[in-house]
Write a protein that binds this DNA or RNA. Sequence first.
DNA 1: CCATCGTACTGTAGCGGTATAGAAACCGAA
DNA 2: TTCGGTTTCTATACCGCTACAGTACGATGG
Lengths: 358, 358
Amino acid sequence: MARVTLQTIADRVGVSRMTVSNAFSRPDQLSSELRERILAAADALGYSGPDPSARALARGTTGAVGVLLTDSLKYAFADEVATAFLGSIVDELAPTGFALTLLSSAAQGDMIPARDVPMDGALVYSCDTSSPAIAWLLRRKLPLVYVDHEPEPGHPSVNIDDRGGARAAAQHLTDLGHRRIAIVTWNYMGLPGLIADPLAVTAGHVTKQRMIGWMEALDKAGVHPTVIGAERMDADAGDLALRLLLDGDARPTAILCFCDALAQGVVRAAIDSGLRVPQDLSVVGFDDNPLAERMRPALTTVRQDVEAKGRAAAAALTTAIERSKRGVTNRARHVLLPTELVVRESTARAAPVSGRRS
Amino acid sequence: MARVTLQTIADRVGVSRMTVSNAFSRPDQLSSELRERILAAADALGYSGPDPSARALARGTTGAVGVLLTDSLKYAFADEVATAFLGSIVDELAPTGFALTLLSSAAQGDMIPARDVPMDGALVYSCDTSSPAIAWLLRRKLPLVYVDHEPEPGHPSVNIDDRGGARAAAQHLTDLGHRRIAIVTWNYMGLPGLIADPLAVTAGHVTKQRMIGWMEALDKAGVHPTVIGAERMDADAGDLALRLLLDGDARPTAILCFCDALAQGVVRAAIDSGLRVPQDLSVVGFDDNPLAERMRPALTTVRQDVEAKGRAAAAALTTAIERSKRGVTNRARHVLLPTELVVRESTARAAPVSGRRS
DNA sequence: CCATCGTACTGTAGCGGTATAGAAACCGAA
DNA sequence: TTCGGTTTCTATACCGCTACAGTACGATGG
């Protein structure tokens, strides 16, 4: 039994293929009586509607948008912040009818998702700014929206105020009288350990912005932080980072963390080492992961509205697609969402000088 | 400037379009010298490789597979178990070069993802067995793998031993001497509250299997459980369920929960109500969500290997696609992964009769 | 020296739709 | 009756690529 196509149905009903196509895609183009007959015939033949691939070619749209993630997609599903972001995107995308396709940055054999997967547009949420995958997307001239990336002229972008949030977090600590402060940041692709030149961290835009924010406030207070790079963004990496810090000669009284997951590890390791949080050590996170509120002590952190970020990204992408379809070329909007310091229980006034036991 | 296609390049280099196609897709079909020239010309023209949609139509494969989720995709991203499952799938899929497209069960306007999104196959992980989306996928004759669904002859499936796990959980409680036992299950699409006829719960396969398992062990011990249906699968729903139970006349000494998220809410509400867990109330979860180990008291639960489930599902799908491409029609394999009771701190021997304060 | 073979490339015929222009039939108004 | 305007359906020309069956030609072998 050969495959059922529009032609099969057309022959069966005795009309042209075009009319069958219209029956499915443009109901106003034929009488409803004929349409009924056509649909009935299609049903009888087990036709499942116009072939999506063929339609994609003819119409020039696929009905799916991509989201470019890191090499290991798994990572995106391990992180509560990332999953909330993705969830928010799909939710916002739902009414538009777009499906979301997950794209790995990595080439897989001779398949390069960013180059070879059919889609109408894409969100770039990869961390590595220089990824060749981004170059492929650009080359395809797909409507693109950058998220948590250095804003690029010509493409819409969505960011949060990483710098301002980090600055507020650091200033919170200096306001509390802390002077021996450490930073546990994320050193993607780098080895874990001490970082000599904080502002030279190679990783992505977000890492850089947060570092700049922290340093702005610390510089103002004349504080020179110890900076540790964590290889991953999970509690174990935070744990490791704290142990490195405790081994050093100038134990910090407060720690700024790149994200809540790292902060969780830092707190856990601190408690395991007999330190009291916040009495002996203040810890600040970033993101306001749901985890932050559940932790004991509840984590002081910088809140970002991940839901809003997802919604903004999805909305920006759909309008970008809409525009490119109509050939409109407005200026690309760059969204910057606010961040907010949330003070909970993991930070306290620095202990008086007596605390200077090294 | 018109679009660059194979023909553009062919004209430029002075070869046939077919040769250019081969340069990209079948390098062994031409001399490497000519191939280099073609690729160089393509590069100069800003060509980004064969158009994925056109290639999909001509080749009959798209390079993406779908995963059919519930109506609200967001839900899938809120649940730690579901995200771990998805993460595991994408990881297993990565080396095969397939991208993963997320499909909502719901129609969105006149777009029905299951019908209209190009893909080579799909995982069915929707909860609603009777979803029209599944019917669309079937109609398209796509290679399909059912996950956590009633196994269907003719299609591979991946399940865990829900029934055995539930039975072990219930027996654990009866072994501990509990006789007043309640069940907090998930009553998808139903109203929250007391369920009179536990085995008639309408929801999906998993719900049913777990219920059967629980009842098997309870029946053997002559226990008639009180059954509460929760509307969602989160802590708040568990919280609500426990309050309903405490309002009833026969307070349970132990509770079996459909999942760890519900169990968390149950425990939280119990503690809030002044009950000690496990001394006054034993609680058992299901899934072994990472959460279970983090909780205090750490949760006794039934472990399922979500990673393995994801890997098995992805593997089953790729082999199903492979087979259908080659027209092979072997018998579909039905995978059943084991579950295991993990006893932690949330269950204890039933208090002696003195505990019968109602 | 002719038959055979492998390599390198080309021509044609689709894949299964949709856009667009146009033909045929029907309608009410002038 | 004529004529513009609808409504309904059709013919044709793509969309951009790939499968497949060639053709051309130099190399191999007896």
